[in-house]
Design a protein around this nucleic acid. Sequence first.
DNA 1: CTGTTAGCGCTTTCAT
DNA 2: ATGAAAGCGCTAACAG
Lengths: 339, 339
Amino acid sequence: MKKAPTTIKDIARILNISTSTVSRALNGQADINPTTKKEVLALVEKLEYEPNHIALSLKQRKTHIVGVIIPETENQFYAKTISGIQEIATEYGYNVMICQSHESHEIEKNSVQMLVSSQVDGLIVALSTETKNYEHFAKIYQKEFPIVFFDRICEAFDTPKIIADNYDGSLKATEHLIDVGCKRIAHIAGPQNLFDCHQRLKGYLAALKKHHLPIDEDLIIYSNFRKENVREYTSTLLDLPTPPDAIMAINDATAIEMMHIIKERKFKIPDDIAIIGFNNDYVSGYVDPPLTSIEFQALEIGRQAASMLMKELANESFSTGKKLVKSQLIIRKSSLKKH
Amino acid sequence: MKKAPTTIKDIARILNISTSTVSRALNGQADINPTTKKEVLALVEKLEYEPNHIALSLKQRKTHIVGVIIPETENQFYAKTISGIQEIATEYGYNVMICQSHESHEIEKNSVQMLVSSQVDGLIVALSTETKNYEHFAKIYQKEFPIVFFDRICEAFDTPKIIADNYDGSLKATEHLIDVGCKRIAHIAGPQNLFDCHQRLKGYLAALKKHHLPIDEDLIIYSNFRKENVREYTSTLLDLPTPPDAIMAINDATAIEMMHIIKERKFKIPDDIAIIGFNNDYVSGYVDPPLTSIEFQALEIGRQAASMLMKELANESFSTGKKLVKSQLIIRKSSLKKH
DNA sequence: CTGTTAGCGCTTTCAT
DNA sequence: ATGAAAGCGCTAACAG
């Protein structure tokens, strides 16, 4: 059983003054007798009074909480992103309420509703894999509820959008493979409704085209991110009449799992098949062979997303349109084919 | 500029009824004319009315939010833990507000204050590395504020505590090393104010004692978790007159980094030096050689911590004392010395 | 079955 | 410099 906390009223009663005076003493701005103020502050200290944010929120119709919806905290990328968001939010005096969609459209929808009901002042969102219908956002967007999308963005709305430059990262990675002599480059693509995955595929295709390599549909496999399907994807590729000489997987986890299976099948990495992943997970430098990967600045993306929202909440600016955050190719042994 | 949301008052005005009737229609329990109810519900639908949780919270002095303080979301273990907490909290109709201490005592202290001011109904906490003074918790504990500690627990308070069985995990891991013939087993220990790290050291020492191996202080190194110091720890061990024939590192990240350096120095793993880590990060199965590790059931720990809190909030039970969640030794090549 | 009223903790005019 | 009163959105006694 929790004890009732000290309120402004308690202070007022004890000091025989009105609650408004206490409020003034606490907030400092208005006219107030320095002596009264000192007394109040002393009692506040003694009684360990803590202001009740809820009451304030109700009064001001502003909770100073931002809602965040991401697919999974277990995903390093989103975990870092959260840190970036919190860093900026804290700076602006905001708190963060995080929901995970677990890649479910239904959960995402409920989270939006719950966060809105909780009166969060704005939303920062990376869409779930399943989300192909945006009504739950449309509903609040048309009420001018502040939303910022990042990474898994929704192009349907005119909100700020922060994304890693997946297109450029993918393009550079593919060109790197072409550089080291690969001719049949496979791509394990992600669900194409996800903006980032779509950009990766586009970057891959652009690189092939630029270097006049044929596009072979057999070399493009659409993954659903499920680990248990990786073996199947890998086998499909290895069993082709002419297997690929390089694979660019949709992420490091998939790449690492594939490397495992490829080695089982006695193919040499990178000499038979070069491998590249996306995300540059911290382990990628430690697997055998070390994995070439495209690194995204997750922390920076989180920071920028939060900054955009903070600015919008402060009515400072209202920048819609996409903002790209640079990505970087980290070259390691898994793609360094001798030629 | 956000538009003002629909309130219960709006509905009442339009329908020419009182707000309490609307409230009753919405909550369903009390007597209410089915027709009136239908009208209200229809309008609620049409106007997209969403109840204001803040108003409810103020009224009921219960926010249905639990605060969570963890060191880092980037840490896989805590990321999973969050998922477990959220799973249970959601089940009970609670939301979760997450703060990261980033291993700072100061930030942890501020987070506690902020969460309490935000009127969260309870707290789930894993302490920061820096935290050696518990006053910020004592203050709320004595007000009977519900707290559950997990993993990095604080023994000073009579609250529920959920921890992975680090002692047993460490004991088993050390015995496994002894089994495969190791005689000079080193331990990279963590800060001893952290409960889990302390238990790991105790398990290690217990195993040595049980098997009548001498305890060599040179073989115990106290780490601060900083990646940049790992090289130094490794060198210290390798440069000993008689280097260790096994190392049990405080976590997989450290173990993997050490493996790297050990290989640079041309020691063979596991034949010269066997390696074991803690946590069983998803990559540990993929490094070269695959890393033996102790796995903790992070999800389960999160679930149990949340369950304990939910029960306390429902006044169902008040179990203080530690609850252990089993850990498991995952044996891989890095510890399989031939003998 | 429904309306009236008071109040949750706080700020903020408006008086004094 | 301070107090009284209203109100943020909602629920819950109480009265009818």
